[in-house]
Design a protein around this nucleic acid. Structure first.
Lengths: 209, 209
DNA sequence: TTAATAACAAACCAACTAGTCTGTCAAACA
DNA sequence: TGTTTGACAGACTAGTTGGTTTGTTATTAA
């Protein structure tokens, strides 16, 4: 028996399940939930029907799991949690905007925002999806509201603006811009509209006297 | 023979074709192109396979026709042509925004913008769709650029702003806001973010001295 | 060491779906 | 008025798709 254990048919339920979730997430990102094929996921993961229906009772349950276990953490890590570390809202939000532009230019140009994609596709079709998705938007909105409020308390953000409104507007604009890029398949729209969004952010700043 | 012609089995190719297009447009609006079923359209129109494939060679061709013959004119009438009659960009755009809010509150709340829906779904999936759709966005963008430029020439819009950028930003924000409403299934997001969009529009105005 | 069970593999199935094909009937045309 | 043709009706088909079932093997508990 060698010290190096050579296992070809290792069984690890967690790994298998996660593999399915990851591939499903990719597929949904590209083709939407309706375009997602169970068989397609199995082909990409080199698994079989037996494995799939051992871990998920239906395609719909897979969809829910993708939202709860992949999409939600992804949004939290990428967009929500960074907000909590923000000290100077205006500067840091502009920086986040630029980061997003670069990242999206690199790989998300033709896929768009996974959260927004699912929102537009599934909201009118299935209430169980809509509620899960709305919950994520809500988390994002709340975090952004808190960030802006913190900025107001620190005297960095105009006290006259309404954080709830501005937060909603920022999220909406951001998603709208990404959506435009997706159609043109280039980041020009991001630079065009991004400049204006940056101007808008600047307009929220308390001018230092 | 009566003066009133009573025809039950009237055949009118144009009417039939248009009926298919209209129903298909509704279906795509609700379920997306991938969720659109040829059989579903036939059921709603009380037509048959024979009729359908007499007018369209495939589901894809139907999709193209829906974009060219229903969606494009709809966007032109609803969003693009009104821009051409605008005399005072800021005031009139704000008014259009309010009109849109009321109209969307009434019926489009859960369906969203048909153009944006198709964009997000089909852009990564099919180039023939993407190009058709991008063309419509382009028309809209150009019209809005011209409107802003006209406002600048008339001394109503700040000369410092870049119409290309602002136009893109306005379209993106608008679509982003509608997308948010779709998820929450209420128009609160429209009022929240709309107030900010209005502020932004005001910031483009040349202050009268 | 063995029995029980979790984690799969893979053939199979029923429903669905885009598209075909043959036939029919109304309208235009000669 | 007969004939051609455009505009359908509707049965049928081949391929797809989500889901089931039965069997097998690795892992774990006793």
């Amino acid at each position: 028996m060698s010290l190096v254990t050579e296992k070809t048919n290792v069984r690890n339920a967690d790994v298998t399940r996660q593999k399915i979730l990851d591939v499903a997430f990719e597929e949904v990102l590209l083709k939407g939930y309706q375009g997602l094929r169970v068989d397609g996921v199995l082909k990409k993961t080199a698994l079989t029907k037996g494995a799939f229906y051992h871990h998920f009772s239906s395609k719909k349950e897979l969809g829910h799991a993708v939202i709860d276990e992949v999409l939600k953490p992804w949004i939290e890590n990428r967009w929500i949690n960074p907000l909590k570390a923000i000290r100077h809202p205006i500067d840091d939000l502009i920086r986040m905007l630029e980061d997003a532009r670069d990242e999206i230019s690199a790989k998300e140009l033709h896929t768009g925002c996974p959260l927004n994609n699912l929102t537009q596709e599934m909201s009118p079709l299935d209430e169980s999806f809509r509620i899960r998705i709305a919950n994520i938007w809500q988390l994002w909105h709340e975090a952004l509201v808190e960030t802006l409020q913190r900025g107001q308390k620190l005297g960095l953000v105009k006290s006259s603006i309404k954080p709830k409104n501005v937060a909603r507007f920022l999220i909406a604009s951001m998603e709208g811009i990404i959506g435009q890029c997706k159609c043109y398949m280039n980041d020009q729209a991001f630079y065009e509209a991004g400049a204006c969004l940056q101007d808008y952010l600047e307009s929220l700043r308390v001018e230092s006297t």
